[in-house]
């Protein structure tokens, strides 16, 4: 069972590993840049989950080829791709905002260490 499971499910396991790595970067790493990097990995793993779940054996990319006709089993499911497309842009937008926040707070507090930052923030309040 295990072997079978691994064979058919290994992408999910690796995606879960990526997911976990991303979360690890966001929660355990103290450097804020590292957190942002972790966030990117975390988001990317979700995109991968969508894309790899949408694969279809014996199907091609979702661009109509006139000779092939439009039978559903011939083309890969376009909906998850659209969702991921949207999500990627959202992800980059979040990264941009996160970076601008990092710049401001680095300018103010001179450090990117989260614990240190929170300490300085409480002190100055």
């Amino acid at each position: 069972m295990t072997a079978d499971f691994l064979l058919s499910r290994y992408p999910y396991i690796l995606i879960a590993v990526l997911f976990g790595i991303g979360l690890y970067g966001m929660t355990v790493k103290r450097n804020l840049m590292k957190k942002v990097i972790g966030m990117t990995i975390f988001q990317t793993s979700i995109y991968l989950f969508f894309i790899q779940g949408a694969t279809k054996q014996g199907a091609t990319i979702p661009v109509r080829v006139p000779e092939m006709g439009t039978s559903p089993e011939l083309y890969i499911n376009p909906l998850p791709q659209v969702i991921v497309l949207t999500a990627i842009v959202v992800g980059v937008a979040i990264t941009g905002v996160a970076l601008s926040l990092i710049l401001v707070l680095h300018r103010r507090y001179g450090t990117l260490d989260e614990v240190e930052l929170l300490r300085r923030m409480r002190e100055s309040a």
Partner: peptide, 19 residues
Amino acid sequence: LVWGALVAIYDALETGGVE
């Protein structure tokens, strides 16, 4: 829109948080 917005983000980041 994407063009403008991304350039805007770049420009904002490029200031480096001047206050």
